[in-house]
Write a protein that binds this DNA or RNA. Structure first.
Lengths: 120, 120
DNA sequence: TTAAAGTATAGACTATACGCTAAGGTTGTT
DNA sequence: AACAACCTTAGCGTATAGTCTATACTTTAA
């Protein structure tokens, strides 16, 4: 599929897709048999990758981290041991974030209680 | 205390403190009796606010959101009902973030299992 | 066949959250 | 009085993650 269809399928603008491609997160390929244009073609995996980017961004991963994640997810060349290391790192950082979020929840809840009780 | 001491107490550079002040998150006040300089003085509450900013930033709140939080926390003028509304909004968004983080953890764990089992 | 719609590249622009430097005045110690 | 250490405003620079504009070529539909 071309960038327009990819854009619709993934719910991401063509501009942003090009930005991700320039950042090395995804890659389209030209059809070498076609000489008249330089249109890039994208596959189903790219749709998945864009969805992964969206989800991972929403939990606070940076594009650099998401790049590592995509490599661990889709690279045929990365050794399994390295993939597991990357995935474990991400799991640890997710746990740490959850821990911090819970601490913040506790703080806000406590303060809410104080406000409600008139200690303000 | 002056900005240098505040900086040390809160572990934030003077530059960043000035940036926060310009952003409306904190406020120092000049001693009007002193005419020879324009030094600003900060109180203990400001140290607390800077710590709150640090913690809230680490869980992904933007400075704009942190501004609302600080108002709910410290404003003497904001009605209690409004404070509670703001705090409840933050609690809801924290729960949503925790939910997303857990979903991402699940995804990565599942994929890790697949990789470990050689389905890659 | 020509106008609309799609694609490519390059580069300028935006917002957030700072970091850094300059140029100047003030305070404290010796 | 000299000098370090501190404070002020102003403004430019940086990284991330886009967003938009300009220019130009290609494809598609009427």
């Amino acid at each position: 599929m071309l960038i327009g269809e990819l854009s619709k399928r993934a719910g991401v603008t063509a501009h942003t897709i090009r930005f991700y491609e320039k950042s090395g997160l995804i890659r389209g390929k030209r059809d070498e048999r076609v000489k008249s244009n330089k249109y890039k073609h994208y596959d189903e995996e790219t749709v998945e990758k864009l969805m992964l980017i969206r989800d991972a961004k929403s939990v606070g991963f940076t594009l650099a981290e998401i790049g590592q994640l995509i490599d661990a997810w889709y690279s045929r060349r990365m050794p399994v041991a390295h993939k597991l290391t990357v995935l474990n790192e991400k799991l640890v950082s997710l746990d740490e974030r959850i821990r911090q979020l819970k601490a913040m929840k506790k703080m806000i809840s406590q303060y809410k209680q104080d406000v409600a009780d008139g200690h303000c």
